[in-house]
Design a protein around this nucleic acid. Structure first.
Lengths: 232, 232
DNA sequence: GCGTCGTTTCGGCCAGTACCGAACCATCGC
DNA sequence: GCGATGGTTCGGTACTGGCCGAAACGACGC
């Protein structure tokens, strides 16, 4: 019985359009200032303050104060996953027919995007599949980076071994992709791969949102390093 | 921008304690009458009517009118999954340490339960693992029933081949189990397995909720058919 | 037919909350 | 020091929406 109230109060956090807009904006994994979120959601700063308090109190967001700014970000991967899950359910249920899906989620988002801090969409799934095919990733029971996967991450991608030390966060985990209905690589390794791709200029954000596209350098790298050819 | 309002209106469906209680009750996969749901949630029948209208309009529930009764059930597996996902996030984040989890979800629910229409909890995971080990289920890329799995379902379990004809619904799919953090068998096959177990008296519901336990017949069957010994 | 019972509609009450503007506070740049 | 700017607090307003009881509706059993 008490769990009904827990469920309700969690859902209530996202049940307001202003708060929902803020959370969706934060899905890009970056930290936003309170003012930016207020402007994005189209409300007065004072109103935004109240909403942000609620979201923090509810455990969905964390804050970091710095000078006169207050930076907000999602509390963690599970908060991001929750919002992704929920927003995925707003897509029309019935037919995942190829042609129809173009109308539901933007084509760019389906092609590639960041999901909190790792890659998702067709691009994310392609990278995950290629890593699995190359023996870098083992999906036979859960998600696990193989020994050669670690070599690849530190050698080919140039990560330092300390980047891959799992703390509270698992090195690799699967994240269900709702546009592709497939799992893709998340966890520490997923974040580092995404970070490296962005840092190397292999992928670039489209506008200010979550959608990303491979650059021409990136296409070459994807082909050479992972054998991914047919990415658009 | 408009997707923020979609997200908000979906979340709003579960943002009320009364509606949340109704949805949690319906997670047992059965159809409840409007009156039963009203009593369960502790509100007047008239109040329940309004809530049920909203839930139906929102696509979470479907109704079937029969005589002077109105039967309500969850709209489908994805609706059930949504509610399970969300309620899983109300569990304390930090440590999935063995000892502590006893306090969070009821022990009986963790041991075994129905998740919409298939088995979940340690029991569901055990069955899934045993089927995989026996070569009946292939988890190497998604969830798939093998040829010998089909034989086992029709032969050993006594299902008719027509029971296993996938329509809109996939024969097998994975469903993420939040108490066990593991996938278990869902989809058409998962539902039929659960139905058969219940029908054969191998498992019994504990009280009126979702928790189930294996009967002594069931323990024998699990041991003989799947080699599962250490189920409590 | 007629009462009974499950459900729905309607009217009205009340609490919670989303919103804003104005005043206030703190930090930055100068 | 001083203004400018980001953020918060506070008061007040308006609206949504959850709740009930009474009355109406419709199917059932007799």
């Amino acid at each position: 019985m008490t769990s009904a109230s827990d469920l309700a109060s969690l859902a209530a956090l996202l049940a307001d359009e202003t708060r929902a807009a803020m959370c969706l904006a934060l899905l890009d994994g970056r930290a936003w200032t309170a003012g930016e979120l207020a402007a994005h959601a189209g409300v007065a700063p004072s109103t935004a303050t109240e909403h942000l308090h609620r979201l923090i109190k509810g455990g969905l967001l964390v804050e970091r104060r710095q000078g006169r700014h207050r930076y907000l970000r999602l509390a963690g991967g599970s908060a991001a996953q929750l919002i992704e899950d929920l927003s995925a359910h707003t897509e029309p249920r019935p037919t995942p027919a190829r042609g129809l899906r173009a109308a539901t989620a933007s084509a760019a988002l389906r092609r590639g995007r960041t999901c909190y801090d790792h890659l998702a969409g067709r691009l994310g799934v392609a990278v995950t599949d290629a890593m699995t095919a190359a023996g870098l990733l083992d999906q036979s029971g859960g998600f696990a980076i193989t020994a050669s996967g670690v070599d690849w991450l530190t050698g080919t991608l140039g990560l330092s071994p300390s980047d891959l030390r799992p703390g509270r966060r698992p090195l690799a985990r699967g994240c269900l992709d709702w546009t592709e209905r497939r799992q893709h690589l998340a966890g520490l390794a997923g974040a580092k791969v995404c970070e490296t791709f962005l840092g190397n200029g292999w992928i670039a954000r489209i506008g200010s949102g979550r959608a990303v596209r491979p650059t021409s350098d990136g296409k070459a790298a994807l082909r050479d390093l992972l054998g991914i050819r047919d990415i658009d």
